[in-house]
């Protein structure tokens, strides 16, 4: 699990305008745990974020998608976050992941296409440490990821405790097509 997953859950709670929940992490892998109001404990980032989005009357419906297709896609990206993003530690894994995301985001503004969803929020948090590590050359190399990331971090309410990642608006290197 990524570092700061408690913070991540808290900022999602904030973003959704929900009352504060008790968030802890469990075990060596730092699996987040959240205590719901009726005393049950939820484990795992995907579960918790889905629960939170469902709980929020105002923002939640939009974040979870409106059609069955969108529900399914969000579920897939939540899984991707937990199984791929969080487990890409080696440089080559990270690069393969960024390459994959870069080609996926080529024709999309957000993960679901044209509106912000839970998938964006969860992957944004997961990718934040990765993006902080990238140099400007790599940021341009994965331009579509950079554009998406910059867009999401500027979405009102998303950024919260995370530092802003700086992107340059000018092409520094000219040898790329996309």
């Amino acid at each position: 699990m990524a570092v700061g997953v408690e913070e991540e859950v808290k900022s999602l709670v904030n973003f959704l305008g929900l009352p504060a929940y008790k968030v802890t992490t469990h075990g060596d892998l730092k699996v987040p745990q959240l205590q719901t109001s009726n005393g049950r404990t939820l484990m795992g980032l995907a579960t918790i974020s889905k629960f939170l989005a469902k709980s929020s009357a105002s923002n939640g419906a939009k974040l979870l998608g409106t059609s069955p297709e969108e529900h399914a896609e969000i579920a897939q990206w939540l899984e991707y976050r937990v199984t791929v993003v969080d487990r890409s530690v080696e440089k080559k894994d990270v690069q393969a992941m960024l390459k994959e995301l870069n080609s996926y985001l080529l024709d999309k503004v957000y993960f679901l296409g044209f509106h912000l969803s839970l998938a964006d929020l969860v992957i944004y948090h997961g990718l934040h440490p990765v993006m902080c590590q990238l140099n400007f050359y790599e940021k341009q190399q994965y331009q579509n990821v950079s554009r998406w990331f910059d867009q999401v971090q500027h979405y009102p309410g998303v950024q919260q405790h995370l530092p802003k990642v700086v992107f340059v608006r000018n092409s520094l290197y000219t040898s790329f097509d996309h």
Binding site: V166, V168, R169, N170
Partner: peptide, 17 residues
């Protein structure tokens, strides 16, 4: 207004570039 202060290296001024 919100990204001017953080954009350390990138100039938004394309004319200048």
């Amino acid at each position: 207004d919100d990204d001017d202060d953080i954009d350390l290296f990138g100039s938004d001024d394309e004319a200048e570039t």
